[in-house]
Nucleic acid binder design. Structure first.
Length: 303
DNA sequence: CGGCATACCTGCAAGC
DNA sequence: TGCTTGCAGGTATGCC
């Protein structure tokens, strides 16, 4: 499921349940996901209070007392869900595990309310880590991450600056988490379409042209921001079985202009949307609207 | 350095 | 219907 809007949707769903609550217990149902679960994870987080639920790029950060942060990445198929608590604590031990429920927390917000918060991940590309809170920016996973696309740092100037020496396609540059952190395949395709830009255009040459036409860079920055914000408002995109933490579906996928719409008409000009492989991943675009000059002459370019 | 293939793992849909 | 194949939002690694 998860690019930035989906992770943000999860964060907003978990926040009211988790923030201020205390972790009564935690449970691990297998030894690893992408990485092994941290040593003594359950012990180390039990009885701590949750201070905040934050997000950095596609990482969910559950900040605990005692300078610890529980980090969760959803990979391709990870999801968190909240189970309504019964007052009877035995409810939790009786509740059957769903397939691929790998990790769970039982939390208590006040003297009465308890919730079970469960991490489910069929493909197990996700991860659960425990790090010191002050390492959130220096930990190897975070140190190289680029800017948050919804922050003020994303601007036309930023794109020109960052792209001017990047000798790769715009698609690859936007997917590069060390430049902008949080974009994935879907929203890159959508942002490029909105911006009338070819995914194959070379980032450095693009940046050069933009010196003369800074508006275009500003427009790309704006479109990135807009597509992400709109997706968050819609509760993310539901592909396959992605759901929000309360089981509600996101519905931004209905607003895709090109992603997943091979052979369907471009919403602007009616030309059939094309799908090609680029860097091993599907790129969806409209040949008519996104016919920028300076395409790379490499593979993946449509003939 | 960039692109590409591969790996991780399961589920699903399409195609035969 | 049932089997095989390919593909999927993620990141990491190694090879050219």
């Amino acid at each position: 499921m998860p690019e930035l809007p989906e992770v943000e949707t999860v964060r907003r769903g978990l926040m009211p349940i988790l923030e201020g609550a205390t972790i009564l217990s935690a449970n691990i149902n297998r030894s690893d996901l992408r990485y092994p679960f941290p040593e003594k994870l359950c012990q180390r987080i039990s009885h701590r209070q949750i201070i905040a639920v934050k997000r950095r790029a596609k990482y969910l950060l559950i900040e605990l007392t005692g300078d610890l942060t529980l980090v969760s990445h959803l990979g391709m198929s990870g999801a968190w869900r909240i189970e309504e608590a019964a007052l009877d604590r035995r409810y939790f031990s009786r509740a059957p595990l769903a397939v691929h429920d790998h990790f769970s927390l039982i939390v208590q917000a006040d003297s009465k309310k308890q919730h079970k918060v469960i991490y489910n991940d069929p493909r197990r590309f996700g991860m659960i880590l425990l790090i010191h809170t002050d390492q959130v920016s220096t930990h190897p996973l975070f140190a190289k991450l680029g800017i948050e696309p919804l922050s003020d740092e994303l601007s036309g100037d930023f794109l020109i600056r960052e792209f001017h020496n990047r000798h790769k396609s715009l698609k690859a540059a936007l997917l590069d988490q060390t430049i902008i952190a949080g974009l994935g395949n879907i929203y890159v395709c959508e942002a490029l379409w909105r911006s009338f830009l070819s995914p194959f255009r070379q980032a450095a040459r693009f940046a050069e042209e933009l010196q003369q036409q800074p508006k275009i860079a500003g427009n790309l920055a704006l479109n990135i921001r807009n597509v992400l914000s709109e997706a968050i408002k819609a509760g993310g995109s539901t592909l396959r079985d992605h759901k929000q933490v309360d089981g509600e579906l996101g519905y931004f996928q209905h607003n895709f202009s090109v992603y997943g719409r091979e052979n369907q008409p471009c919403p602007r000009c009616g030309t059939a949307v094309i799908r090609v492989k680029q860097s091993g991943r599907s790129t969806f675009f409209c040949k008519q609207c996104q016919n920028g000059n300076n395409q790379l002459s490499n593979q993946g370019k449509p003939s």
